[in-house]
Write a protein that binds this DNA or RNA. Sequence first.
DNA 1: CGGTTATTTGAATGCATTCAAATATCGTGG
DNA 2: CCACGATATTTGAATGCATTCAAATAACCG
Lengths: 259, 259
Amino acid sequence: MDAKLVSLLQQFGAEPDAAMRGAASLSPTVTVAAGASIARKEQAATHLHLVVDGWAHGWRDLRDGRRQTVALALPGEFLDLEVLASGEREACITALSPCRVALLPLPSLRRLADQEPSLRGALGRLSARDGRVAREWMISLGRRSAMERIAHLLCEIAVRLDGPPQSDTVQFPFPLTQSDLADATGLSVVHVNRSLQALRRQVGLVLERRRMTIASWTEMAGVAEFDPCYLAADHGDHLRDRHAHARHAALTELRSERV
Amino acid sequence: MDAKLVSLLQQFGAEPDAAMRGAASLSPTVTVAAGASIARKEQAATHLHLVVDGWAHGWRDLRDGRRQTVALALPGEFLDLEVLASGEREACITALSPCRVALLPLPSLRRLADQEPSLRGALGRLSARDGRVAREWMISLGRRSAMERIAHLLCEIAVRLDGPPQSDTVQFPFPLTQSDLADATGLSVVHVNRSLQALRRQVGLVLERRRMTIASWTEMAGVAEFDPCYLAADHGDHLRDRHAHARHAALTELRSERV
DNA sequence: CGGTTATTTGAATGCATTCAAATATCGTGG
DNA sequence: CCACGATATTTGAATGCATTCAAATAACCG
């Protein structure tokens, strides 16, 4: 049972009771080291994975070794929600930092989702958010410059961790290496390094001892043309029936997501 | 009512009866010219869109005009399935060729999905396929060379239109301009032109009067490192309960999708 | 402390872009 | 049916962003 998952599911519209039962279907968590494999593409998908603590990513590679990160999971987020509907995993999952990962047995989660419309809706909206993030990444990979890509990713991470920032100075843990950033942004390690230096000069970015500081969020978001609305939980009128002011609350709630 | 939609839903696991009722919820179709807008990002999402005939795409752009296609819809495919769960549209939808588009009222489709588990499952699996396609595009945009990107996209289109090809020579209608291809692959028009010429020489690609011919599918798929399995309907064990040999049938059925 | 991993720098190369202009094709009205 | 304007494709040349290769420095881990 995991309190963070309960609150996540409720944020995305699950009834308190349904959220509890969803979270109760967790198997005991496993702990893995940074760089360790959590699930491989080929193996049968029997469980869904939730990162309780730590960061992980899903990736694919081409025959000659070029690698692309296709999904990033921060504390409290699912890694492979798509497995719920399709039954097959489409990427290898690897820990980017030391991780505690919860396993949710697929059959029981499906049974639960079939019975609980609100839980089903919450999982659907979580998938939809993953889709929005994926599309935003497509825009970065296809059309943004190196600096813009990195800036955009950093903004996204900041908001996914702590919600839209209150003050102009933002700070958060950052376990990724420059090589991880390269995988996620479709750039070479060397160029990530150089773009990071440019950001350091332009928007006062500091990265030391696995901690990121953004001196000017305004500047950074400007460089990235960043609009956080694609990260909000409520992206329509689903919740509005149940929670009258859900739309407004959504962003506020995101802020407490930091789990 | 649209026979193609019925068969699409059944391919993805809806009961015949449920598929019929899903298709029955279609509003009358509208016809739009190539280049015309079908739905805008900002406007309230009241309907889902299905391209009955013609090609369309969803796109986003940056302030300075750089544009990226984030989704492509071929005849018989949904354009904005993500709206079903999230309630908001995340891209502008534009016709790439003359199009007949069916509108499905969101509320009635949701009601239907809530009542019909098999229809719900089919829509979920269709969304999951959209997700797999999106991730494949991320790999192209992030890590494939210009020629590889275009080759991969052409392979994908060929399979989405007609299923995995039987013979080594493949032919299909192709209404996209090179500028459309540039939007989809994250390249400049000029470079698309040059890469197309390279493909012409290397794999005997011919594109004339809106018709594409691939002389050697083997060559083309080789250049693209193309593996069609991410396009299959059945990507897990969901269907296996109902249709014993669904997995094998999935690819075969895809072949008859060409609508 | 020493080995390993990560970051940083320099220099050379290359893939893709931009700009500009020519040619070809398409659609439409005369 | 042809002429016309508009759209799409093609080519050349110059530039630039990002990559690769190589090596040095710095940080991390046991």
